[in-house]
Nucleic acid binder design. Structure first.
Lengths: 211, 211
DNA sequence: AGGCGGTTTAACTTTTTGGTTAAAAAAATT
DNA sequence: AATTTTTTTAACCAAAAAGTTAAACCGCCT
């Protein structure tokens, strides 16, 4: 095992069995959750025997835990950086929206996974999965308040602004099938619709907060 | 059985065994999903023997299907009414936000249930659960376009406006535990925070769409 | 070549879980 | 009161799923 300079959550060399198992588990757990994904299924997808799962990862729980950790610890630092950079506020919000929508449209099941995990097993989540270092939106909040003081921004509670932006970015991708039904869109149309979200969200947010 | 004037999805008299089973199943399925909820668990919560579940509802699938139908058919007509009423647009949006946030804060797990169901078992959902009549936001869209034509509204795509409003209403409740962590709020504070959402969303949306 | 550690497999065991059955208890009907 | 019907239970069954084991395999070292 030569994973000396890799985080424990991304095990083994790039195409090792260990890694293949992890990737298969990652895909299936994110897609179906802990109960929905079956060990046999994971083994099949990884192209190996079921016993190997237990050889490399002691139990289903353990494997799940590592996957969950990897998912979380991949997303958090980027968010942290975006929020705490020293870019001017408007640019920061714009970048944040771009990044978030890019991420969510590439991995539409990840936010759902995190939300489910957090709602349904909060105990495990806090104890085993969340890292000590959490995004601190402190700098972002300060910036918002400064701009308000300068009169460049309508007085909005910075916490609500952050929640609003994230809501507008994430929810439409999570609720994609529902939107398809209600708006009566086909595969192509919903894709086009979601592709417009970056510009739409930016326009909506900037209009909402400008003085 | 005297459920002559009740929908088939709400069976039996108010405190019958049948109803108690249904209520228990409702709670657990909404909370944990099809795979997560176990028949024994449902029986325990209903205070009866496991065999009774199969006596009243043939199988887990059937029971789940009825619960899902009940959840859906409770919410859809109200949304339909809100969207298609002839209230003036601003009032309609305001009512919509009030209702949606009320509903979601009373049943925070319902939207998550619907979203999961729709993402993970779309086939079953379309065939067995969704009613024929779906909310048609047609009237709402027309109103938006009229107001834009009259110059009362910034030109926004009505579909995006609808999605934005729903996102702002639903997402914060679904993502409540995540918000708690990131904003560092305790039980009381997050409750207060979410209670502000109605006014916050209205202010945000109206500012975003006004000319 | 022969042994050694890590890797992989097939076959097995145990636990969980959905579902069944036959009979007892309770309620309704006569 | 007797009987029929509905409700409820305990015990059981079969399938699925997690987890285990012992033996085979494979690359490497000397």
């Amino acid at each position: 095992m030569d994973n000396i300079n890799q985080p424990e959550t991304t095990p083994g060399s790039p195409d090792s069995t260990e890694q293949r198992i992890f990737d298969a588990a990652h895909e299936l757990f994110v897609l179906k959750g802990l109960d929905g994904a079956k060990m046999q299924e994971i083994a099949d997808k990884a192209g190996i025997n079921k016993a190997l799962l237990h050889y490399y990862y002691r139990s289903k729980e353990k494997l799940y835990e590592m996957v969950a950790k990897a998912v979380i610890s991949r997303a958090l630092p980027i968010i942290q950086n975006l929020l705490e950079s020293d870019d001017p506020l408007e640019e920061k919000i714009s970048r944040f929206i771009d990044f978030y929508i890019d991420m969510v449209s590439r991995n539409p099941f990840v936010p759902l996974f995190v939300i489910n995990e957090l709602n349904k097993h909060p105990d495990r989540f806090f104890e085993a999965i969340l890292p000590k270092e959490l995004p601190r939106p402190h700098n972002f909040f300060r910036q918002v308040e400064e701009e308000i003081a300068k009169g460049n921004l309508r007085p909005v509670k910075p916490q609500h602004l952050l929640v609003n932006v994230v809501s507008l970015c994430v929810f439409p991708f999570v609720a994609k099938p529902m939107i398809r039904i209600v708006l009566g869109l086909d595969q192509q149309e919903i894709k086009a619709f979601l592709a417009q979200r970056k510009e739409e969200v930016k326009a909506f947010v900037f209009q909402a907060i400008k003085t």
